[in-house]
């Protein structure tokens, strides 16, 4: 089996040195290039044509996201493994969309870097275990909103209240609009939420968005 050709881009010398030591210790890995900035990294990767490019997200010059896009666009044979300090799942999605095949937190690097490089080189996708859960999270809520479909039918007042709640009005504002008391609004809201199994305002908003109730709002904005 061929040794895995790996290129390394990190602006931090200590980290770079640590990774280099770790990678060179693996007999199956060939370190074919190093860069300390985003701008230097692209020509280096283009020239070396590695199997796996380990890229730090936050680098001066060209940041990790752009670099990933350029590398996946220009070097189809190179798979990108993102190495980052950012634990926010929010960073993951854009990078995965941009073509990254792996996402590894720096603090896990000591233990998991070699495994990640091997996994990506083998054609798989590697996500750091501590963020793997986050990346899948958003789909769950949407599922709940859909599940509420089968609930009991709402009265017109409850529907109206729910719609206004989703549009961001306070109970007092709703009470004024519907010409009822604040207590009544609270009651409508509680009853409607119970019928549909919605527990929070965010869920109500998602339910409303799924119904198209907020289209008018979207037009307005």
């Amino acid at each position: 089996m061929d040794r895995i050709r790996v290129a390394l881009a990190d602006d931090h010398p200590i980290v770079l040195a640590g990774i280099r030591t770790l990678l060179t210790a693996d007999p199956e890995i060939d370190l074919v290039g190093e860069a300390t900035s985003g701008r230097d990294a692209l020509p280096m990767i283009r020239a070396a044509g590695p199997d796996v490019a380990v890229i730090d997200v936050s680098m001066p010059g060209l940041n990790g996201l752009e670099l990933t896009e350029r590398v996946t666009g220009e070097c189809p044979g190179t798979r990108v493994l993102i190495l980052t300090v950012h634990e926010d799942a929010a960073y993951v999605q854009p990078l995965l969309k941009a073509g990254a095949r792996g996402y590894l937190l720096k603090r896990s690097a000591a233990d998991d870097l070699l495994r990640a490089v091997h996994a990506v080189a083998a054609g798989g996708v590697y996500l750091d275990p501590s963020i793997a859960g986050h990346a899948l999270d958003p789909s769950g809520a949407a599922g709940r909103a859909e599940a509420a479909e089968g609930g009991e039918a709402l009265s017109p007042r409850e529907t109206e209240t729910l719609r206004l709640i989703a549009q961001g009005f306070s109970n007092k504002e709703i009470a004024r609009r519907l010409d009822v008391s604040v207590k009544s609004v609270e009651t409508y809201k509680a009853r409607a939420a119970e019928k549909l199994g919605l527990r929070t305002r965010a869920e109500i908003i998602r339910y409303a968005a799924a119904r198209g109730w907020l289209d008018a709002l979207a037009l307005r904005t």
Binding site: H12, I14, V15, A17, G18, I19, T21, L22, A25, V85, K106, R107, A109, A110, D111, L113
Partner: peptide
């Protein structure tokens, strides 16, 4: 943070 990362990488070696 990077230095600590370097530290843990060094410790791994």
């Amino acid at each position: 943070g990077q230095t600590v990362t370097g530290l843990s990488l060094g410790l791994k070696s």
